[in-house]
Design a protein around this nucleic acid. Structure first.
Lengths: 199, 199, 199, 199
DNA sequence: GATGAATGAGTATTCATTCAT
DNA sequence: CATGAATGAATACTCATTCAT
């Protein structure tokens, strides 16, 4: 960010911009993401947008930051001890579905379409790693005896399968269906249970 | 398409354009897809491009057509009778991985980024349905007694999970790894086997 | 100026702004001269800047005022009686070099790049005339019998030649060299001595 | 340049753009140089301008190229053997005046205002060196026994003094006056004659 | 048919200036 | 008075599309 907002007024402006940006990015994708429209949707002048974000990319970076934090919370919650394994998995699936419900295309746009900021290890990568660690915790809780390699691979597969299913459901508008949730849960559970059998 | 190419030369031109477009779309995504560059990569003048494709969208539509045909073949092959179930699943997973190997970002770009042509029932949808029918055939072969609804839901989940895993692997460059293929196979197999138990 | 600063604090503010403006104008030229940056460099809010200067032009006008006064002093000193002719010339050359040393691009920027304030007879012109009178005094001291026209023309030539040489030296970073000073002195001296021969 | 114009039509376009750019740059300086206006003055769309020049700087670079070539020809002509020394000097002064007559502010704008293209040794520097070699040839012709250092310094002084005088005259609109030409000639001649006396 | 020059609406970004706090 | 948030006209540059040759 170019400038730290000091007064309450400006914090509200920054907020409005990031929210509007989130909506536009989710709605039209990266190719249709246009700073002038974001400003308009935010009810703010284009100048104000650039007062706080030096360029387009830094704005999507802020959006990414905010979105990934939400996702992370869901994943972390599922890794927490003190819940039965079944509950953890259910929480994970339910949480991921919820996170994508309000703006389903956003996640994919952030992950796949938006070019990452100059520094390779930017927010993007940092988040992905933390994110995977969350999944690994879930797997490890269920298959505590597995080797690290196995856990990592499984976390990868589960996370990407979940995202694939949710993303696809979102595209066809069935994200809210109970069937979807149950099947997704079955998919993950079946895979994790199968894990023990041969390793 | 604006014009049907009749002579061999024209067909070659159209071919070059579609191939170049495929490369550019996979390489830079929809936001970076630009007709002038496609023409240049194809070694053809921009005028020629517009001779055969009335606009940008009709060009990506042709690209989509070609790509989805390839994918469809893989799915159909897996649905064919005469192979053991294990072989079918394996063929499906291996085939999908292969299809994405040469140009991993293309599939997602076509599916998620490119706005679909005006008519809702466009090629896009048509293909998706055929595509799902292929998956349903695979599921039905393995769980012949299941109800239609169950089969449909399972096909949906499997196809989107496979795509999610492959897409993610492509992003991190592990698409060629054997581990990935085995895990993906395990995921699908475990899910399908679990199916029988409660329905 | 919009307001006369009355209290000491205000005078300090105005001072800081003019100094910052001088630095920025010299450093980046008129095209890179930007009121927000000037305020920042001055350690003052943009609002304060506009408290004292109604617009950008009035600010550069103040800068010009200050700079030309310095230059004028050098020229006047060289016109003063009581010194040998050789000393006067030397003082003139040395003084002009010194004036440009701290901020070499400033003079040209003020003279050539900055558009002059609306009124044609603006500060700009007023200063230039006084400035030339100074040079004329120097010439007249050396060639007291020459006609007014001749003196005016000679003053013009000398002043602009000196500026040209100094400006060029500044551009190539040789403004401090003794050779430069000697050659410049030779140029002026030779020209003034040649004056007597044919008029 | 981004593209080599192949057809006659496009060569005319490029020409119109460079000419318009020259006019605008001379007329409004670098701060007022604006590609949209240049295109308009050239009677060409903004798109055409960017078809041939990848950015603003490359356009001024082309302008610089063209202008400096003209200047160089004048200087070279003055260095040519076969003319009396008096004629050479006269040709030099007259030529430089002529070159600046049509667009007096251009030279200064190119030299002082326009930031040079990325490569330090760009056209800018290359030209300046060739330019100085021309002046050195003139000095050497008149003072053939002088040492190289002396010749170089003298060339520097003369070139910058001439530019200073001409630039100043242009600013006050006296560039056409005979007096100016005579005085400028006297300045140069006096300096060069004085050279022999002490070195 | 093929070419590539030309067009201009669209988009990112800057900066002089105003005004509520 | 001082602050700095907000404004929006202006400006560099892109790219889908047309059309004369």
């Amino acid at each position: 960010m170019r400038k730290q907002p000091r007064q309450a007024r400006s914090r509200a402006t920054v907020d409005a911009i990031v929210q509007a940006g989130t909506r536009v990015l989710g709605g039209k994708g990266w190719a249709g993401f246009n700073t002038n429209e974001v400003a308009e949707v935010a009810g703010v002048s284009i100048g104000s947008l650039y007062q706080y974000f030096p360029d387009k990319l830094s704005l999507v970076d802020a959006i990414r930051h905010r979105h990934f934090e939400e996702v992370q919370q869901v994943v972390n919650a599922a890794g927490q001890r003190g819940l039965s394994l079944a509950r953890r998995l259910e929480g994970l699936v339910r949480g991921m579905i919820e996170v994508h419900h309000s703006n389903p295309a956003l996640h994919r746009a952030l992950l796949d379409e938006v070019p990452s900021l100059k520094g390779v290890e930017s927010a993007h990568t940092v988040f992905e790693e933390e994110y995977l660690r969350g999944y690994q915790a879930v797997v490890a809780a269920i298959r505590p005896r597995s080797r690290r390699k196995t856990i990592e691979a499984a976390a990868q597969v589960i996370s990407s399968a979940i995202e694939g299913v949710i993303h696809d459901a979102a595209r066809r508008g069935t994200l809210g269906s109970t069937t979807l949730r149950r099947e997704l849960l079955d998919l993950v559970r079946a895979y994790l249970e199968a894990l023990k059998e041969h390793r």
